[in-house]
């Protein structure tokens, strides 16, 4: 499993939680992500925003090596994902699985440990205790032995977050965690993420609700196939960037030329 990491030897940009350079991902005949340069420092709670089809989920999948990269590379704390699996937690979209699966909340959380347990050992008492602690962190310990099909959408989402937390990740990637959950759950999720950030972890959240962006995040990535802008929220959350991200189709190359000639706060690292 470590072949890729060892083969590459020296770390590249080890001081950045996430370093993406010249990344292009293509599904069929159109690029989903085009020429992405993106740096995210450790310890921030970053939002990735952009319209439908902007490639937000694809960016997370590219970081996690789930889609083939047409060009470019991705580093997490200086190393490719394959060498950093244990430091990265991932919360997929809740709708990506069939919740009518015969299992309990605590069992789903235990799945977060499968990778590090070795694939042959069966989980035991210790793994269950760890899973219960992770459920406690998201306020779900009382429902540990409930069938997952009987949980509400917000509770299912928190189970998914607990499954990522059980790995004690340094970087946490979440794909639309607020989609389809009620206001109370949304508040408790953002509380959990804020707590993790204070512990020094890096959190990257694909988000779709512009109303809450300023309250939730301290770092922002505007994405629409290209990175329109990225940086501390105070310097990049501007009407101009919103317009450029959400205002109609983005021309891949013309915009790029403008960016090179344009003011520096449009650059990828802000």
């Amino acid at each position: 499993m470590n072949r890729i990491g060892e083969g590459l030897g020296q770390p590249h940009e080890p001081d950045l939680a996430l370093h993406v350079e010249d990344l292009t991902v293509s599904y069929g005949d159109r690029p989903a992500l085009w020429d992405i340069d993106l740096n995210i420092p450790p310890g921030v709670l970053a939002g990735v925003i952009g319209p439908n089809g902007a490639g937000k989920s694809t960016l997370l999948k590219a970081i996690l090596g789930l889609v083939p990269l047409s060009a470019g590379h991705v580093r997490l704390f200086g190393h490719p994902y394959a060498a950093q699996r244990r430091r990265v937690g991932y919360v997929p979209q809740r709708s990506s699985v069939d919740w009518d699966f015969p299992t309990t909340a605590v069992d789903v959380v235990t799945m977060g440990l499968y990778g590090r347990m070795g694939w042959l050992r069966w989980p035991g008492r210790r793994e269950r205790d760890q899973a219960l602690r992770a459920l406690e962190e998201v306020g779900m310990d009382a429902l540990a032995d409930r069938q997952i099909s009987e949980l509400s959408g917000g509770q299912q989402q928190r189970v998914f977050i607990a499954r990522a937390l059980i790995q004690q990740p340094d970087i946490l990637l979440l794909d639309e965690p607020m989609a389809g959950v009620d206001a109370t759950t949304e508040r408790s999720i953002i509380d959990i993420l804020g707590r993790l950030r204070r512990e020094g972890r890096t959190i990257i959240v694909v988000h779709h609700d512009l109303q809450t962006v300023q309250r939730y995040f301290d770092w922002l990535v505007f994405l629409n196939v290209r990175v329109i802008a990225a940086g501390p929220i105070d310097s990049v959350y501007t009407a101009r960037n919103l317009r450029r991200t959400y205002g109609g189709q983005v021309a891949l190359l013309d915009e790029g030329r403008q960016r090179n000639a344009g003011p520096e706060n449009d650059g990828p690292a802000g």
């Binding site: 499993m1 996690l64 789930l66 394959a82 699996r85 990265v88 991932y90 997929p92 990506s96 699985v97 069939d98 699966f101 299992t103 789903v108 799945m111 499968y114 990778g115 694939w119 499954r163």
Partner: peptide
Amino acid sequence: LMTFDPIFAAVTGL
């Protein structure tokens, strides 16, 4: 893991 959540299975290196 693959039956329940194939994406997460791939992320853990399966």
